[in-house]
Nucleic acid binder design. Structure first.
Lengths: 348, 348
DNA sequence: TTGAAAGCGCTAACAA
DNA sequence: TTGTTAGCGCTTTCAA
């Protein structure tokens, strides 16, 4: 590893001059000619700053902590982490991921992260929930990812659940479905509320009366299949919007048992959480993939903007939204990532 | 953050004495009474070493890099990362995860990890493959996780595919199945070879002739379902061992279309890669969960043992294997994690 | 048995 | 415009 000292020696200047140049603090402080010689030597020697040494002085490590307790159980986390990592990497940061699952104590992991000098934290859930941020994070910059702060005091990035359901349902309407069912979740979640509202709005806008009989909110696998099956026979829907892939599967199962084919006899749009259906089993189906990558990306970027105290607009953004695809288009389609800016922000 | 200096002042000794004590180098060098006073002060002040400062001197960060290119697409990764993190944490290390998926250049990520001072690397695949380890990792300690080095030169931790299939098949035999089919993978993979062999061995040991007609190796979702369906009708198997959950799903679909119920009319044991079936849809099914946690755990521990040049036996291990559960036992069951020790080892 | 001192690579205040 | 210096928190000689 090349050091500033070596650059200084080879260029015939002092270490502080090198430091100034390498940190872009040379404007008006170092002669342009000297600066470019320094840069040239640095390039030639393949110099890379030593983050440890720097952080020892500056108390800033350019490390972000990503905290989640469900990395082990869902593939959501992967996309989110990837997004966060992508933003971090573009902004010159490193992401350290800790999972508090599996009996490890969250506080210990946070302590470890602090010791390693994390400048700020991403606190992630894997589906939008009202969340209490741990006490230990109080005095650090924090951004919630796919979660909502109970006290509304911490900035968060969440999916636009309403629009997801609205667009999915509208999509089914436009595909010509007459009776569109909603297979939802019975446990109260932010996503469920938003999506049910989106479904309802789309139905009413299409001139279809909102009909409670077409809505089944389920939780337990065993009774769930029965409930969906009952509704299936009772209401004979020809379109389904499903809260997630597990719930979509109930519809698949019902269809198979009745000799019906999805995409031909009935239409299904569902949120695909596990990537199993979209990628493996039914590549031709229309599914909605939640914008986990984007949420991770935005959250990390937001966090950096807090840490460095500069506006988000300074950064360069990727495109994060796409329109709903035609009914037989290749999927998954990523739609709607809403950045909620609210509350105040903890600073160290 | 408390520093050694503060401890030194409060105890009335020098920083070097504190350092000696905190690093357990005080034996015969520091008076026992002084040492215990130092420890007491450290405890009282809640001292935690500053890893940055230490690594600046020692050139060792106690950071492990976890490199994988599929974090985003499977939940396997989560378990593996969790295992690796668990071992790392127990051994006083920190895990930094980088995912090289999504167009980010692997080499760049490795460079970043090196800059942050990683002492060694875990290079992970998400299903056992023959793998080339990147050039950039050449001079560092590396352990392959769920992967096999093409040159057989790098230590790796892999699942015991043979035993997984052997035990699963035997399980079906003991459950009383007469005609047991194998739904495998047509792409050549280490797992496929090992599992087919395990299936075959179990069949023959049970006095059943190995019958090629009962074996369907498939890949493409569309043709796969057809192939499984054909075999289903032709051979009328009453037991199925499936390579993964996608393949198990073909059997579910076939069964549903024929009015058959799994666990009653036919028996299915499958490797559950996505946790969808075991956790959500068929909690009563017998599935095999690959020991991702254990692989991650062992691989990280092995890596630390290489870095610190001490034998694995110095560490304390969790139990990693369990016998096959009875056919209706709660799942997932983790079985068989084999640590393959082979080849030489890179050292810095 | 203990402490003083040097130095890891870097930044930043200050002096020249 | 540049260099000198001090010091971040720690480890590790070396001398006392």
């Amino acid at each position: 590893m090349t050091t500033m000292k070596e650059i200084a020696q080879q260029t015939g200047v002092s270490v502080s001059t090198v430091s100034l140049v390498m940190n872009h603090h040379d404007e008006g402080r170092v002669k342009a000619e000297v600066a470019s010689r320094v840069r040239e030597t640095a390039r030639r020697l393949g110099y890379k700053v030593n983050p440890m040494a720097r952080s020892l002085r500056t108390n800033s490590t350019r490390i972000l902590g990503f905290i989640s307790d469900e990395v082990a159980t869902t593939p959501y986390a992967g996309g989110m982490i990837l997004g966060a990592q992508s933003a971090a990497s573009q902004l010159g940061y490193m992401l350290i991921t800790v999972s508090t699952d599996g009996g490890m104590k969250e506080d210990d992991e946070i302590e470890a992260l602090k010791r390693y000098g994390a400048d700020g934290f991403l606190y992630a859930e894997m589906s939008n929930r009202v969340t209490d941020v741990p006490e230990k994070l109080r005095d650090y910059p924090v951004v919630l990812t796919d979660a909502t702060d109970r006290n509304g005091a911490i900035p968060s990035v969440e999916p636009d659940e309403f629009s997801i359901a609205y667009d999915a349902t509208t999509h089914l309407v436009q595909a010509g479905c007459r009776r569109i069912a909603y297979i939802g979740c019975s446990r109260p979640m932010i996503a469920q509320d938003g999506r049910l509202a989106g479904y309802r709005a789309a139905m009413e806008e299409a001139g279809k009366r909102y009909d409670e009989n077409l809505v089944v909110n389920v939780l337990e696998p065993k009774s769930a299949l029965q409930a969906v099956s009952d509704m299936f026979d009772r209401e004979q829907p020809d379109g389904f919007f499903c809260f997630n892939d597990a719930r979509a599967w109930y519809v698949y199962e019902c269809a198979a048992r009745r000799g019906l084919t999805i995409g031909k006899d009935i239409s299904v749009v569902g949120v695909d959480n596990h990537r199993v259906f979209a990628e493996t089993l039914y590549p031709q189906l229309t599914t909605v993939e939640l914008p986990h990558f984007e949420m991770g990306f935005w959250a990390a970027a937001k966090l950096v903007s807090i840490i460095e105290d500069r506006p988000l607009d300074d950064f360069v953004w990727p495109k994060t939204t796409a329109p709903m695809p035609p009914i037989d288009a290749p999927i998954p389609a990523k739609i709607h990532c809403t950045l909620l800016e609210k509350g105040s922000v903890a600073r160290r």
